[in-house]
Design a protein around this nucleic acid. Sequence first.
DNA 1: TTTCATGGCTAAAACGATTTAGTTCTTATC
DNA 2: GATAAGAACTAAATCGTTTTAGCCATGAAA
Lengths: 342, 342
Amino acid sequence: MKKVSISDIARKAGVSVSTVSFVMNDKAVKMRISREVINKVENVAREMGYRPNQLARGLRTGKTKTIGLIVENISNAFFATLAKTIEDEAKKYDYKVVYCSTDNDEEKARDLINMLSQRQVDGYIITPTLNLGEEIRKLQGENKPVVLIDRYFPQHDEIPAVLVDNYEGVTRGMEYLIEKGYRKVALVTIETEMAHMKDRLQAYCDVLKRHDIKEEGHQVKIVPYNSGREGALKEIEAVLSGAGDSVDAVFFLTNYLGVLGIEVIKKLKIKIPEQLAVLCFDDNDIFRLYTPTISVIRQPIEAIGQRAMLALIERLKHSGEGAAPENVPIKLVADLVARESI
Amino acid sequence: MKKVSISDIARKAGVSVSTVSFVMNDKAVKMRISREVINKVENVAREMGYRPNQLARGLRTGKTKTIGLIVENISNAFFATLAKTIEDEAKKYDYKVVYCSTDNDEEKARDLINMLSQRQVDGYIITPTLNLGEEIRKLQGENKPVVLIDRYFPQHDEIPAVLVDNYEGVTRGMEYLIEKGYRKVALVTIETEMAHMKDRLQAYCDVLKRHDIKEEGHQVKIVPYNSGREGALKEIEAVLSGAGDSVDAVFFLTNYLGVLGIEVIKKLKIKIPEQLAVLCFDDNDIFRLYTPTISVIRQPIEAIGQRAMLALIERLKHSGEGAAPENVPIKLVADLVARESI
DNA sequence: TTTCATGGCTAAAACGATTTAGTTCTTATC
DNA sequence: GATAAGAACTAAATCGTTTTAGCCATGAAA
């Protein structure tokens, strides 16, 4: 019981392969195939359960109707939601998406791009790691559109990117904390050279400076990327043990760090917000359900996915022409969700 | 700047296409290509940045080195973890996985199978919806191996399946509740005809019967599948409003329901475990971090992914031969994680 | 001198589609 | 009666690989 091909149908219907192809692609009328032949072919195709081979089609046409999505980690809530949005959005334009995770590893990211390229995806949506600029330029050189999400390369402004306005988001959060009277705000962030995180860090520093908060107000803990779960917990604990004393508030710069932070807070039995105010960049179910509920700066995940998809589709359409260089990166505004933790 | 093909290399290196192919596939020695030609070809390929076209390769060989993974919803923690495990596992065998979500919609599931089939994936791992038996048999007819996960079709024991022992898991949970003195255990489950959920429900009933618990002890709430978030919250609230009175414990049969349950409990300010003991089938970060922590029956997600992958690879290897019909379904044991909620 | 290996490659078919450029009938037009 | 203009199809090239069968030397064996 082999798969049925277009020529099987042709044989059974007593017509040529081309005729079948025209019928299957709704070009029958344009090619003046008679009504009866059309019906005959359609019937035979249905009976035999024909499903066009996309490999063959892609090989011939050069289009696979597939886009590659590279995220940091698909099992992280943020990326999972983003992926789902993009998948749903892609379907509207009749594209399928295949996704994969870099685990933030440069080498792995390169391998993934390579793999997707070999599979001839039509375009890419990428959460880049460091030093991926060259690889991405190569894709563009092959005329494959690329849109970055969540992160960007300031030095490569010819690569379109869609992300939250990180600087503005953290500024908003910090202003809120300060307005509520907190002055000793610890920052917990992740070790990285990437611009989006630098922007967040910069915003923190700028706000403190603007309010003339010095020394004791500046407590930045940078968790090394490879410290693992246990290591990260230790690092965070080191900061939070100062709660109620050297620290009166903490701002976690990623959702993942925030969840670890909750774990530490729970362990140390720190009272929120009496001993410690808590704010996190990026929402998570846990923050909504924890007692007390945790305030967050919420990224507009759906909007990011939609805008990215839109930008990509635009480029896929006019892939030949010189892509109109949008003002990059596109920065969307994050909103503050005030809950009980501040 | 077009993509470079094998014949571009052949031309530049002054050899035939076949020779290049042999070199690129490590068949050069077997084909007695001389050392110098091998080196030459390899150099040219590297210089030109050659990446084999997998469409062409797949078309020719009939193997895409890709497996299709169909889950209910990739943004759900359970399936996201499962997907990640399977992806990692697949990589070991040099397979790529492409995943998609059914949202538990029969029609969508069929479409996805169709789409993956058109893309010529070599095998499938599927979280089936209702009535997918026929479609799956068709795949097997085309000699494409299929392994089910999380769910199974009792009436189709020729389709291999890997899942947790649902009956045993719920039995264990119920015995634990009863041992701790709870007698009025409400059950919250989802409306479905699928066997794995029937098994869970059956276990609940059997345990109560075994302990001679009648009437007041039997409170089964079946949340309709299409009730949406708000609807589901209402349904659950209807049950939990009896906490401390007609109900002294609640057992959520899925992780998703459990999270909604927590939301209701929080809203109604129900004291756990004083007014209500809580148990959930399937773990989630929230259960670990909520105060108090919530006990769960934990599924061995990694093991499920690994066993499923193993079974699939086995079948991919001997796809010609009559697949040795394993004892199906493979049922793995779930363990009870006792926390503070009981 | 013919035959046979063997070493070192290449030609060409095949995979399953799409698409361009025909081909073969009718029928209408001058 | 010759020509042109559709109508209704089909042949064959093509996409980029893999793979089988075979070609052409050279040297050894008979």
